[in-house]
Design a binder for these strands. Structure first.
Lengths: 159, 159
DNA sequence: GCTCTGGTACTCGGATAACTCGTGTCCGAGTTCTATAGG
DNA sequence: CCTATAGAACTCGGACACGAGTTATCCGAGTACCAGAGC
């Protein structure tokens, strides 16, 4: 899995702590974790295309969450970076086998495909059940200092 | 995820239907699904290194299951091909952040890492709960003709 | 007829290329702010 | 003093290189079988 997923998740969570109308530029977001700014920008573009973030050009521009943190799931962010296709892509090799029939959808018949699909479905279901708001409240409970530090680090117009 | 996983799973399941002492060469296994023989051989080597398959050189040689199908889980096969590392590899970018402390293991502290790890753990747990014997019996129940076809296709010394 | 031996054919195993995709970077399009000149 | 305007600075967005991992292939090492010669 791409490491951009980790960057995207942390960045979205950080954005959940700044004022809703305020945008944060890529340079600031990247400096927060010492990430390569241009590449992080590329990842954030994908989040914009997925409708998770909204972007603004020009001075005072940057990125902000496109909707309420409670309406953004972890799966949304992962799918935006990794793409919609599932990890185990069944190539239906059974079709080439002895009992292969052209008209059959082996993704639904094949027991192996079913097993892998079911496991991945549960994985997605778990990630779809966790929203940014959940992560936010959990962190605030365990590390009360983090929200203030984050907001300060992202809104301070820096050197 | 590598498509070699699909090949390995189908091949292992097929090997579960041939007599236990009989070995099947790569050429026969590859011809069964019209796969590239040399590349399939490479994947099977990984299964041998993982202790899932056993190999024999020379005439009448080939591959066979190294242990009982009930003792081989789907996760074993997946891990043998994909490697032991997990999909979401936490790079601990929090360490580079404002509140970063060198001695802390952020893989255990970070809420995002915990979430991703938990989801993936469930995924592994599900795959670890399915053995080749389970798949075998399910297929035999739904498609009674498959075992005979498979055994015949793999044990027939052909052109 | 039995046994030993050399050869042959067959199979795995690792070393070797081609290619796709993830990683990283750069410059242009668009927007806002500001300073200045004019009324 | 107020306003319009031209310039400049800042930011996103997509286009352009680089490298690692996957995909694919080939040839050598090792082994079992077989044929033939000797006893």
């Amino acid at each position: 899995m791409s490491e951009g997923v980790e960057w995207a998740l942390h960045t979205c969570l950080n954005l959940a702590w700044v004022e809703e109308d305020r945008s944060v530029p890529t340079s600031t977001l990247a400096a927060f974790y010492e990430l390569p700014p241009a590449y992080l920008n590329k990842q954030l573009q994908a989040l914009v295309r997925a409708g998770i973030l909204a972007s603004t050009s020009g001075p005072r521009g940057g990125f902000r969450l496109a909707r309420d943190p409670g309406k953004i799931t972890v799966l949304d962010v992962v799918a935006a970076i990794e793409g919609p296709q599932e990890a185990f892509e069944c190539a239906e090799i059974l079709r080439q086998g002895p009992g292969g029939v052209p008209g059959v959808d082996y993704r639904k018949i094949c027991v192996i495909s079913q097993t892998m699909r079911q496991a991945e479905l549960n994985w997605r279901r778990e990630l779809a059940g966790r929203t940014l708001a959940d992560l936010k409240s959990t962190v605030e409970e365990r590390f009360p200092a983090v929200p203030g530090q984050t907001r300060h680090g992202l809104t301070n117009t820096r050197t």
